[in-house]
Simulated assay, not measured.
Amino acid sequence: MEIISKYFPDLSEEQHRQFAALYDLYTDWNAKINVISRKDIENLYEHHVLHSLGIARIIRFRSGSNVMDLGTGGGFPGIPLAILFPETKFHLVDSIGKKVRVATEVANSIGLKNVTFRHARAEEEKQKFDFVVSRAVMPLSDLIKIIKKNISVKQQNSIPNGLICLKGGELENEAMPFKNKTVMYNLNEEFDEEFFKTKKVVYVAI
């Protein structure tokens, strides 16, 4: 938990309490339904929570924004972002029901009021959002194809609506088709830990 306070020193008491509760909740749920690699659970705050919050280093969502977390798994990046931005609505979608259940239970346990959940494939989600966020495993072009229909035309943030995803490794070729609309941020410029050496936040205006 110290690692979160180190980079986000202005948390309210409530946010502090919510972040602090995540470790026991995920450890408990992970023993029943595997949403985080068993070896990785002790790195929850660095590899999952702080990684999710990397998105907050490039945008502070305005109050009233609407954000979809696609392929949320156990609730990343959606739940950490929902704690950090209590005035923003987050809609967490995953095609695997038991993962959605874990995310729902965790959110309920910490009293998150600004999240909704849906067990569905991305293609089935028809609502409109300012941004889609994702810890993306699929290539950017596939992701953009799926979520284009979900991006609202109404603008209310400091950057145009679009996709913001967490990715690692070499992304130049993947981003090539969208190069005029893409900005990449290296998380090693934001966070000192070795884990973030190759991690990026990729933003594509849509």
Rank of each mutant, 00 (worst) to 15 (best):
I83C: 07
V106S: 04
Q156A: 06
D142L: 04
K98F: 02
D130F: 10
S141L: 13
G73S: 05
N43W: 04
K126C: 00
I147V: 11
H119Q: 13
K126F: 01
V102I: 15
P77F: 01
G78V: 05
P77D: 00
I110Y: 03
E87L: 12
F117D: 04
K113F: 08
T72E: 01
N114L: 12
V100C: 06
V49K: 01
L44W: 03
K89Q: 15
V35R: 07
I144V: 15
L140P: 09
R62T: 07
L92C: 05
K128D: 04
V132N: 04
R135E: 10
V132K: 06
L70T: 08
G64F: 07
V132Y: 05
D94P: 07
L81C: 10
W29Y: 11
I83W: 11
V102R: 01
F61H: 09
Q155H: 08
E105T: 13
V133P: 01
I55T: 06
A103M: 09
Q127T: 14
H47G: 02
D40M: 12
D28F: 14
D28C: 09
I55R: 02
L53M: 08
P80F: 10
K113P: 07
V93E: 12
R121M: 12
E124C: 04
R135Y: 06
D130A: 08
I59A: 02
E87Q: 15
I83L: 09
D69G: 10
L53W: 00
D94K: 00
I79R: 14
I79P: 08
S95M: 03
F61Y: 14
R101Y: 10
I96Y: 03
E123N: 12
F90M: 14
I59S: 01
H48Q: 05
S109P: 04
K113S: 15
I36L: 06
V35Q: 01
I79F: 05
